[in-house]
Design a protein around this nucleic acid. Structure first.
Lengths: 192, 192, 192, 192
DNA sequence: TATGAATGAGCCTTCATTCAT
DNA sequence: CATGAATGAAGGCTCATTCAT
């Protein structure tokens, strides 16, 4: 079979795994199903990741990096906090709505991670938290530092909650409508 | 063994299963582990529920009924929408924070149900939706009918999101603080 | 399938396993082969022993008990040490020669045990040692206490060595001839 | 990588394999573990030996040659049979005690060989047998020809048995003490 | 020649479920 | 009714070996 660098193979497996996990959950996603979805023999999957656990953490990391990359592309600038928050919320939800499999897998993996290594889950959560707090800190007029964390946490809550609904209904249009409502709420709260 | 009515047995299994599911997820909760947690022979579990799927749906139903009972106890009355919403949100989150296992199992079962019979999940979701819309409809001054659904959906989103954070951090105090922030947001949005 | 108490099933598996191990070694004796030799489904083997390791230790124990039972049946009495030693050596080798599978499995299991839990192997070895020392202690005229252990150890060495040859040649007649030579040697050494 | 002549490579693998086999048995010694112990890529092992079986036979041969070389260095001379036998026994056990890994691997490989090609095992056994019989034939006064074989076989038994104890206890001092006892036994038997 | 990449076969184990008493 | 015993199906993983470069 075509000789492919292991790193590339790994990406193929990760992609395939995300689809399977979205469909069957983290536990239901057997290595055999994932290998089949990737069009590769089972043994190749284990050649690349050794264990299923490794693969799942790699996916965890992968999904993390996608978000991370997006955030790094954004440039924090001096606007009202409400606008910044609205942008972040809308951007995130639009992406989620456009990639339902990744979105669903994200939640499944999250729960799996939380079950298998809670500390790791918290650590990653905090990475996001710090990043978003950084964005809001650039707001003009500035938000009082002591409110920053709670505000971000509630925005995260909003995102997670909207995600759960997206998972349940899979209705892109509806979710965007609710995102708008959530945005209005945020604006009402943060802004004048 | 002391004769125990089947219905009681079932409740014991359900209770035990909730704990195991909170710890191991819906797929990771094997019938053996559940039976052991219930202090009953494995065969008895199948004698009561026939299949694992039946048991899981029974739990789904059970958790549903708890919330349902709570709602039915409440009396919709003529107060500002913001107050009603705040009460519902706070009550729900307080209960969630006080029963972490049930809360966690709820999410796991939800995802499981969504995977195995999406229509059923949607149907139950809509039951909640209608109930909460009913509460808000009693508000004075009334909320325009066409905003009702979206508002409730966003509140649900808030709840789900806060729940996810409760699962991740398990920090009761923090979650109540964020619930307060979310409440403030709701109030700001629904008007003073 | 016929309902059989687990303890009986276990014995059947042990018996079957001994044959397979004699043929294929402890590592080469797969649970599938053993189950097949026992005429039982693979899952039943694991129902009875959980793990292959458990099964192997059970065999270890089983073979130990056979010898142990034999020894307990024997009655130490006041004869010359040379006679006692000769009897023990001959009895052991005769049994070994008459049950080649058990004999071979014994060696394989021994090496396996030694690899997986050396302390356990040593402990069992010492049980034998003490038992045989007890027999020789009854000799008349008595052997000096300080020679007892070494003599028994060398007899054990003789047995192990003859066993290895039995394994290699599988020639019962020859081994009995050599056992006679070994006996003569023992007699020459322990006294006239 | 520095170019290394294939013959040297092979020796490195053999050496590494002996260590791994001593630790894990012949079946437990996977080609991966051996390659790792040799500090070489897995594929290189198969490049040198094609199959694991080839490697094991090469080890079998290697261990054989070490003993063979030792024997050839010795010069049979006209001494009492008891002295010659004592020298052979002591020399062999001293070497065994000083190289526990090789000694242990020897036994493992022997059983493996015996399982995979009994005829080959017997053939090698007979090589040793003839060599040692040759030594004893030089004794003065001569041992009757018809006793030669059995005597050597019993000495071999003694060696194998002491080896097994060396494997179990790994106690060099004790084994040399028992070797002395065995020697005394031989001497008593072969006569002064 | 040397070696990362790839893999079919098979291993131990576990699962939900059913059977037999 | 209740439950030890039993099991087909499947799961994660490893192994010796081969391929492709």
């Amino acid at each position: 079979m075509a000789h492919v660098p292991t790193e590339v193979r790994r990406q193929q497996f990760i992609e395939a795994a995300i689809e399977v996990i979205a469909r069957e959950g983290a536990d239901g996603a057997t290595t055999r199903k994932i290998a089949e979805a990737a069009g590769a023999p089972l043994a190749t999957l284990h050649y690349c990741f050794q264990t299923k656990e490794n693969l799942l953490w790699a996916i965890f990391e992968h999904l993390h990096q996608i978000v991370q990359a997006d955030l790094e592309a954004a440039v924090p600038d001096a606007r009202p906090a409400a606008d910044i928050a609205a942008d972040l919320l809308n951007g995130t939800m639009r992406r989620a709505a456009s990639e339902p499999a990744a979105n669903r897998a994200q939640v499944e993996i999250w729960l799996w991670a939380e079950r298998n290594d809670p500390a790791m889950a918290v650590k990653q959560y905090d990475t996001y938290l710090q990043a978003w707090m950084g964005f809001l800190r650039a707001a003009t007029p500035p938000l009082p530092e002591e409110r920053l964390e709670t505000v971000v946490r509630v925005i995260f809550g909003l995102i997670d909650g909207l995600n759960m609904q997206l998972i349940t209904h899979g209705d892109e249009e509806m979710i965007l409508r609710e995102t708008a409502t959530a945005t209005a709420m945020l604006t009402a709260y943060l802004g004048d």
